[in-house]
Design a binder for these strands. Structure first.
Lengths: 243, 243
DNA sequence: CGGATGCTTGAAGCTGCTCAAGTGAAGTGG
DNA sequence: CCACTTCACTTGAGCAGCTTCAAGCATCCG
């Protein structure tokens, strides 16, 4: 076995490990692509270097050119409505995908702003569309990935209560950040209160008060962006509207 | 030209006219499919006869087998959360598509109940997935169609106010029912108040009061399910949160 | 150090909810 | 055909949750 064979195996291994933490792995790796197909897919994906907090990945009205997978960091997506009010669409942490918002009108309908210094994979839409036309399993995985991203939106329709929404949000961030590699029930929020409150559809004041209430009742501990879920069980009951 | 040539032309014409009012036409007709491809697509689509009000098209947990296009009638989709509360996902009128909710987990995540006696086109998912793998433009159109269906969900995140949400809802129903063939600004709601209120995230009592308020201020006229938009301009301002 | 930003806290007011009763239309059965 | 039930909707009164406006802290950063 020559050195090149080893190299190739190694590189494949690195790729798989790198993508192992990434939602997009459902797109490329575990669906049983042939090695040649995997290689073709890999050549399409650009790895974009660290992007500074405060910069924009894309803005409302930008042409739809690619979908993005977050390798590290966090990105918020939001739009400004006719009345000038900010509307948070969501947050995207390590291992998650964004950009599908532009599939229909072919233009992005929100701004994607980097919250924490982030590294991304960029998958040009044309390329992936062309390749999925050839590989049916890839086509289906694109659909599924898109479906999963959109399904997130139903989550907050459930919470009528402010405190219920907060509980849902905290538990959601916990599982997602844990999946991204942090300690369970103990995490740093990547966004400021204002972003959270507009995401939850409440005022920052109410958010502050309700977080204080959760802390006083011993369900969580909060210090600025640091959150520790003291009693995830009870928090989960609140999230489900029990009691 | 023999009789069969005439027949074929006629049938194609009928098909095109029938699909001309249908959202799915973006899927099959106007994207420039070859006649042979169009024929293949047509053989996949089952036209399902009139379904009685109160019956179910699919239920939560059902396997994902097909997507549906409404030819006439109206269907509501809703789910029941852990606490037993009903959560309306949306309404689907003539010319619209439903069923994409099941793309990701491969099972439907809501119930689809017929509100008015409805006729549907049934497009088996396996078939369309197989065909879109061959025809790239079809693949893209499936994505776009899906994106458009999901984009509807952002609409109500905007309305913070109850009356704003109602205004958005009324204007939305107006345009959609108008597209389906009714007189503009004058329509019959296909659903009961309870469905509307849970769709808007308010109580039926509040809905009743706010509809009364809109009528008193001369913006609309309501009588049970019949709605007439007296002043669509002002209604639109309210929908946008102006004033 | 001083300003800016992000967060918290307080008081008053309004929106929408809950509970409860009442109306009106449509269908049911004797 | 008419009382009776049912269902959909409306109306009222009181209350809770959330918002608004305003001020006060704390932390970060030049």
């Amino acid at each position: 076995m020559g050195p090149y064979a080893d190299m190739s195996t190694l590189e494949l291994g690195v790729m798989r490990r790198a993508c192992g933490f990434c939602s997009l792995n459902e797109l490329c790796w575990p669906i049983g692509l042939e090695p040649t197909e995997l290689e073709r897919l890999q050549t399409m994906v650009d790895k974009t270097g660290p992007l500074a907090a405060g910069s924009y990945l894309f803005r409302t009205g930008d042409a739809f050119t690619a979908i993005y997978a977050v390798r590290s960091g966090c990105i918020k997506s939001y739009s400004i409505d006719a009345g000038g009010h900010k509307l948070m669409h969501g947050f995207h942490v390590s291992g998650e995908v964004l950009g599908f918002d532009a599939v229909y009108p072919d233009r992005h309908r929100c701004n994607a702003m980097i919250l924490e210094c982030s590294s991304l994979c960029v998958i040009p839409y044309r390329d992936i569309a062309r390749l999925s036309a050839e590989i049916q399993s890839l086509h289906e995985n694109v659909l599924r990935l898109m479906g999963r991203e959109f399904s997130r939106q139903h989550m907050f329709a459930e919470g009528s209560n402010g405190i219920q929404r907060i509980a849902i949000f905290l538990l959601d961030m916990d599982t997602r950040l844990h999946r991204a590699g942090t300690v369970e029930h103990d995490f740093m929020l990547p966004m400021i209160r204002d972003d959270i409150s507009s995401y939850l559809g409440i005022t920052p004041e109410t958010l502050s008060r309700l977080l204080g209430k959760l802390q006083k009742t011993g369900l969580i501990e909060v210090d600025r962006r640091h959150v520790f879920l003291t009693d995830p069980m009870r928090l989960n009951q609140i999230a489900q509207g029990i009691n």
